[in-house]
């Protein structure tokens, strides 16, 4: 399987969930954290992309330029990306300033039947050797052959990849599969998928996309995004870990981002909590959650490590007494560097 690129849309799609009011402090802190976790790319800006700050769809707290400059300053390895919908943003007012700041990845999107409105932008970016992807939004609204036709237009303009957005979270897994396979087989492009969670299928649909050949995954931490939210990146990373697919991203660090920044600093209450994800990953009964947290507090341990050790011991429902047993064992065997020390034992 080809290496998967994760395009983290938390600081773009997430803006929708808080009326485009992300602070520059949060943007900077988030960028430093995901850079440290080893994420491929982070997309930053107004929820509808460059130039979209308006009364029509919502005014941004900060300008595109200040958000992007802040992000750029706080990234070392992770690439910085933008999204732009022609009609909202233009080359002159949107792309040129972004290029000036040093944006690495450009996603140019439109409604799924209107690919030719992205021609001048994709061609302009491709000619200047920028990394550019075409995006087709609301992709449940067009047939599979029509989507392929539109994707081929973007390919002819010079896009190196095509990302289908399920902007309304309306697609079912078999519809994702047919769309992805059609693009994988019918173009020479890298293919990506951007899920929404309106029917609680965002993560399942993203997994289906990967299994159908997608190599670009759009997601957000905690699923922080418009409406019901997006594919939750940490959950997906845990699933890939379980499947033995290497992501190159540090799961524990992404879980910290989820708790500390998205749930903590931003205050978003959606998504699956890190501990519930680890409970699933380690195969330990969900009802252990609260008791594990108490034990972790009492013995100054990472509750995630307790879950994983419980998983290693194959505990079953009713064996809650073993939580304290495991915690005391871990205290006695505590390593000097105990961060994520047991996670690898699962694999």
């Amino acid at each position: 399987m080809n290496k998967i690129q994760f395009f983290d849309a938390t600081l773009r799609d997430g803006s929708h969930a808080i009326n485009h009011q992300l602070s520059l402090e949060t943007i900077g802190r988030y960028c430093r954290a995901v850079d440290d976790a080893g994420l491929s790319a982070v997309i930053v800006g107004h929820g509808n992309g460059l130039g979209a700050s308006s009364l029509q769809v919502g005014l941004s707290k900060h300008s595109d330029i200040s958000m992007l400059s802040t992000a750029k300053k706080n990234l070392k390895k992770t690439k910085l990306g933008i999204y732009m919908i022609p009609g909202f943003g233009t080359i002159k007012d949107g792309l040129l300033p972004a290029i000036e700041i040093g944006v690495d990845i450009f996603k140019v999107g439109t409604h799924c039947t209107e690919a030719d409105t992205t021609k001048e932008h994709i061609e302009f970016l491709a000619k200047n050797d920028h990394e550019v992807y075409g995006v087709l939004m609301l992709s449940h609204m067009a047939s599979v052959p029509r989507l392929l036709e539109e994707a081929k237009k973007m390919e002819s303009y010079g896009a190196q990849g095509i990302i289908l957005m399920d902007s309304a979270g309306a697609l079912l897994p078999d519809e994702v599969k047919s769309r992805m396979e059609s693009l994988v087989n019918g173009t020479h492009l890298q293919v990506g998928f951007h899920a929404h969670n309106n029917m609680n299928l965002a993560t399942a649909n993203t997994l289906t996309a990967i299994q159908s050949g997608a190599t670009i995954v759009d997601g957000t931490t905690r699923g922080f995004g418009a409406g019901a939210g997006n594919c939750q990146l940490e959950t997906l990373l845990a699933i890939l870990k379980k499947m033995g697919i290497s992501s190159g991203v540090d799961l524990y660090k992404m879980l910290d981002v989820s708790d500390d920044i998205v749930a903590g600093e931003i205050g978003y209450s959606g998504g699956i909590s890190p501990l519930n994800i680890i409970s699933g990953l380690s195969g330990v009964f969900s009802a252990f959650d609260e008791k594990v947290q108490k034990a972790a507090k009492q013995f100054a341990l990472d509750p995630r490590d307790i879950f994983i050790e419980l998983g290693n011991r194959n505990v079953v429902g009713g064996q809650e007494d073993l939580i304290v047993d495991v915690a005391m064992y871990m205290v006695q065997n505590r390593k000097i560097d105990n961060s994520s020390y047991l996670l690898e034992s699962l694999l």
Binding site: T90, D116, T117, E120
Partner: peptide, 18 residues
Amino acid sequence: ASKSAGAGTRANIDEFTQ
């Protein structure tokens, strides 16, 4: 309407906006 946006408009959407 998509049908009323001719090839010229679609290829030069920035001109409309600017």
